[in-house]
Design a protein around this nucleic acid. Structure first.
Lengths: 279, 279
DNA sequence: CGTTAGTTTGATGGTCCTCAAGCACTGTGG
DNA sequence: CCACAGTGCTTGAGGACCATCAAACTAACG
């Protein structure tokens, strides 16, 4: 097993409620990719390398996309719905959510992003962004300009394919989320959401079948799952009383993983893409 | 205004209920792109040309993707959830829907596709398809192999960007659909859906603010909107009685377009991308 | 002329929303 | 040091929205 040093000085600052747990960094490389020699590879590179075998040149181009690192405060939008000429970002540490605000003021969270995920990639090619992106905790993200991306694609078409794959996986998650809103009741929806998040976090070493640290509030869950905060609370209580899962104090604990999988009818096929796709 | 001849001999066959109206073809080119000299350009080419200025070479590569045209019967899946090694398709005529089946047998329709749309593109790069695709009427579609796509990307990176744009737009529609399921009541959801479909069809000349031909059943609407077929019927009755929109006999008629827009809080920004993106 | 697919309407009840109130904890300023 | 506000969590009561069950109706089709 390979262990890493925390990258970036900012990440060591204790930030309000983060004194007990660290939502930002991961502690081990999943799959233990032996051909990666550098300690300080980005989460995105790790994620893509787990699925697509990239050449030295492609890895270099990918790393070059990570110039222009910036730090953002929690609650201050990175990307705003309706604004044009947006940059995309690669999330290096922390949690963010993408959401749409309705004319009546209500909010629908489309997805949460964790380290290694792209932010606002869809907005880059559309004239104006169709959604907003907000950091849930303080984050580190690398700004990626449209021109950077197009240049990278021209230099290494295989990298374009790799990023296409990542986008496809993100879209598969959005679709699964849509299915949850359309066809699952509140209990199953919550169970499915907590399981999916666990599986995603496990992939970057930030969680396991035992549980994970989670900075989300019950309001976040309500806005993501299309429920009222009141009902979220009741659902969480029920799941806790049924000894399935405990959501408390920024920590998700799976009390009965298999039981939760059964309740949610959780099938992680859309997340598990084992083995390199491109030779 | 430029008029086109119906492409493909199959499209002229009368197929069950299609004797009165034609769900497959469009009759005029939106925007009237003067630089297109060929009469027989595909709907996809037209759609992309409306937004991205493509060179002769890129247009040629795009048309080459349209070899391997095939006809599919209504109701017979093109793409099956859980199967690997899937091809993608470009829809040339007819309507299809993409959906996911739940373990309990219920179905959630993720989106409908109309001529010029990609089918199963997301499944190409994932190991196994996460959804199924079913023709609603008899369709014509061009099969696109992964290798074709990768070759095309390597030949013309700008085309990769153009297709990326189309994928982004599709994803924006899925996201808007998700918002509808999470945050709109049944009336607004239905209104929004009918308006979005109208806007999409208008872009390829198959509809207007007056209305459009629509081969969907109330069961399709129910599966797409996360409602029961019974409730769909009631909602349609209410919208009809309120003189907003009439859905009847395969025809959608907007009785009060602005009123419907107000009810749905419909903002077509995520669909309208005017002007070429790339110079 | 029975069968099937699609539409329509009524009755009943459950899931989940809304309103309302109280509690715990944290940080702030007098 | 303590009142106070702010944020987030918790619980109760009442009711709206929409699902489910049931049944009738129409049109198309063999």
């Amino acid at each position: 097993m390979v262990f890493t040093i925390l990258a970036g000085t900012e990440a060591l600052r204790t930030d309000r409620k983060q004194s007990l747990c660290n939502y930002s960094q991961f502690s081990r490389i999943p799959g233990g990719g032996g051909h990666l020699t550098e300690i300080d590879t980005s989460p995105l590179t790790r994620k893509l390398s787990a699925f697509v075998a990239l050449s030295e040149v492609e890895l270099a181009v990918l790393e070059r996309l990570h110039q222009r690192r910036r730090v953002f405060r929690a609650g201050r939008d990175l990307i705003q719905q309706g604004q044009g000429e947006q940059a995309a970002y690669i999330l290096a540490s922390g949690w963010v959510c993408s959401y749409k605000i309705q004319p009546d003021g209500s909010r629908q969270i489309v997805d949460f992003q964790i380290p290694g995920d792209f932010l606002g990639l869809r907005s880059v090619l559309l004239k104006t962004s169709d959604h907003s992106v907000e950091p849930i905790v303080e984050i580190q993200a690398a700004e990626v300009l449209v021109s950077d991306l197009l240049t990278a694609f021209e230099q290494t078409p295989r990298l374009a394919t790799a990023i296409f794959w990542a986008v496809s996986r993100d879209e598969a998650m959005v679709v699964e989320h849509l299915v949850g809103l359309g066809r699952r009741d509140a209990d199953a929806r919550m169970a499915h959401f907590l399981l999916e998040l666990g599986a995603r976090l496990a992939l970057v070493g930030m969680g396991s079948k035992a549980g994970y640290a989670c900075p989300l509030t019950q309001y976040h869950l309500a806005d993501a799952l299309g429920l009222s905060a009141v009902h979220v609370n009741r659902v969480l209580r029920k799941l806790r009383e049924d000894a399935l899962v405990t959501f408390r104090d920024g920590q998700v604990t799976f009390d009965n993983y298999d039981g939760l999988v059964a309740l949610a009818e959780f099938d992680p096929a859309y997340l598990d893409q084992t083995g390199p796709l491109l030779k």
